[in-house]
């Protein structure tokens, strides 16, 4: 189950990356392709970081499920993992419908753009 849910989460981010006209890369961050795909999807789009913690929680639940022995605890963890994947799907779907989702609230894009430009200049 955890493999299926992790794969679904990756597919969601692959769709987002393709919609941006890029090819999803086969890289890993902290052993997770999901986190690498998120990094790829957020490049130049700081508002996409609004789903960063959701991706990290998916990775965390996936890891914990690998050690969960007790059946009811395992079922509960799987249910939470499924809800995290669903939240990721809803967020990405929302971003695809209305690109500005998250753009001018927590992403604070103008600030990030400034920082990015500075970093580029420094480089």
């Amino acid at each position: 189950m955890r493999e299926t849910l992790l794969r679904k989460a990756e597919e969601i981010l692959e769709e987002w990356v393709r919609a941006r006209g890029e090819q999803p890369r086969d890289e890993r961050v902290e052993t997770f392709r999901l986190l690498a795909l998120h990094r790829q999807g957020a490049r130049g789009t700081p508002s996409f970081n609004a789903c960063r913690e959701t991706c990290r929680e998916i990775a965390y639940h996936y890891n914990v499920l690998g050690f969960e022995q007790e059946e009811s605890a395992r079922r509960h963890r799987e249910q939470m993992l499924a809800m995290l994947v669903e939240h990721l799907r809803l967020f990405v779907q929302g971003k695809m419908e209305v690109e500005g989702l998250g753009e001018f609230c927590c992403a604070s894009r103008p600030v990030r753009q400034g920082s990015a430009e500075e970093e580029m200049t420094d480089a």
């Binding site: 609004a50 789903c51 913690e53 959701t54 929680e57 965390y60 639940h61 939470m80 809800m83 995290l84 939240h87 967020f91 929302g94 209305v98 500005g100 989702l101 998250g102 753009e103 001018f104 609230c105 927590c106």
Partner: peptide, 12 residues
């Protein structure tokens, strides 16, 4: 609660 900082679509 794993969605404690997750997006609620508030601005939209």
């Amino acid at each position: 609660f794993p969605l404690k900082t997750a997006c609620c679509g508030g601005a939209h």
